[in-house]
């Protein structure tokens, strides 16, 4: 048996993703977002989280998935990594589960179109479902954003 990991499970385009609980500050319902001009399309803008201004990213956009309108189930997961605090818009956030760190396998080369470097690994939830563990540092990597911006221009 490896270490027990507490993981927040959220859904994005019919897939299940996981982030370690200690990286997550809060989970919020959708709230008004103020657009910030001249930023990549997946950066939705900034929100007021109890007096602190926090940027919000649409994770669908970040992973190059089709962006959809927010629904009743949409949530903003506020994560903190290094000295960055960022909100992720996800389709829904439903669960907190314990998984065994041994149960996380290294990701296969191609997983649902999302490049492997954003992923820490894949864990089996039950017979049907797989849980994709996010690599937060890579998701929040700004160097790549700069490249993206250059691509857009």
């Amino acid at each position: 048996m490896g270490e027990e990991l507490k993981v927040i499970v959220f859904a994005l385009a019919n897939e299940h993703y996981g982030i370690e609980v200690d990286k997550v500050r809060t989970i919020e319902r959708m709230m008004p977002i103020t657009r910030v001009p001249k930023t990549p399309a997946f950066i939705k803008g900034v929100i007021n989280l109890r007096g602190v201004v926090i940027p919000v990213i649409d994770l669908r956009g970040r992973f190059g998935l089709e962006q959809t309108e927010a629904t009743e189930n949409s949530r903003i997961i506020i994560v903190a990594s290094n000295d960055l605090e960022v909100g992720f818009i996800v389709d829904s956030a439903n669960d907190v589960i314990d998984i065994d760190s041994d149960a996380i396998d290294t990701p296969p080369e191609v997983v649902g179109g999302i490049r492997a470097k954003y992923l820490r690994g894949v864990a089996k939830l039950d017979e049907q479902r797989l849980l994709i563990m996010l690599n937060l540092v890579e998701v929040l990597n700004k160097d790549e954003i700069i490249q993206l911006e250059q691509l857009e221009e």
């Binding site: 910030v36 001009p37 930023t39 201004v53 926090i54 940027p55 960055l84 605090e85 929040l140 700004k142």
Partner: peptide
């Protein structure tokens, strides 16, 4: 005044 946060620094005109 509130900072925009590290993630968004360097937005022009803001």
């Amino acid at each position: 005044l509130k900072p925009l946060g590290n993630y968004l620094n360097g937005s022009p005109a803001v």
